[in-house]
Computed example of a mutant assay.
Amino acid sequence: MNATAPQVPNNLVWAILATLFCCLPGGIVSIVYAAQVNGKLAAGDIAGAQDSSEKAKKWAIYSAIAGIVVGILYTVLVVMMGIGGAASGGY
């Protein structure tokens, strides 16, 4: 009987990228969950590994969305400050 362990992605690359480029707190949570996947697979906890994998993926997505939202808000703020400064004769 060929019993191979199921392939459960740990999403560690996405967690690290989200931490570096998007949102540090959400990315760290994603890294923690991603780090749990391989250990749970080695212990035979397939359901736990799949749960940690899904949580890592969700937190990486949340982190990416937060980074995009903050970037857009920052850009809008800078543009509004520039328009306000030009209108008041600050230049």
Rank of each mutant, 00 (worst) to 15 (best):
I46A: 05
W59C: 06
L20W: 09
V37P: 09
A3E: 04
I46T: 15
N11Y: 11
V8P: 11
I46S: 04
I46F: 06
A35P: 01
T19N: 10
M1A: 11
N2E: 10
A86E: 06
G71H: 03
M1W: 03
S30F: 05
G39Y: 00
G89D: 11
G39M: 02
A66G: 12
I28G: 03
N2Q: 06
A15G: 10
N38Q: 15
G89C: 08
E54Q: 14
T4V: 04
V29N: 03
D51F: 05
A18D: 10
I31F: 09
W14G: 15
N10T: 08
S52E: 07
L17K: 14
A35M: 13
A49K: 11
G89P: 12
V29R: 10
T4W: 01
P25D: 08
Q50G: 15
L77W: 07
Q50S: 13
V37W: 04
W14C: 09
A60Q: 04
L24V: 14
G27N: 08
G27S: 05
K55F: 00
F21C: 09
G82I: 04
A34N: 04
A49W: 07
G90V: 06
W14F: 10
K58I: 10
K57V: 00
G39R: 11
Y62N: 13
G39Q: 09
L24E: 04
A47H: 00
S88P: 00
A18M: 07
G39K: 12
G85Y: 01
D51E: 14
A18H: 06
A3I: 10
I83E: 02
G67Q: 04
G26A: 12
I83H: 03
I72F: 10
V69W: 07
V8K: 03
L77A: 14
P6V: 00
V70E: 04
I72Q: 02
I68D: 00
V29G: 05
I68L: 15
G39T: 02
G82N: 12
V70W: 12
P9H: 02
G90T: 08
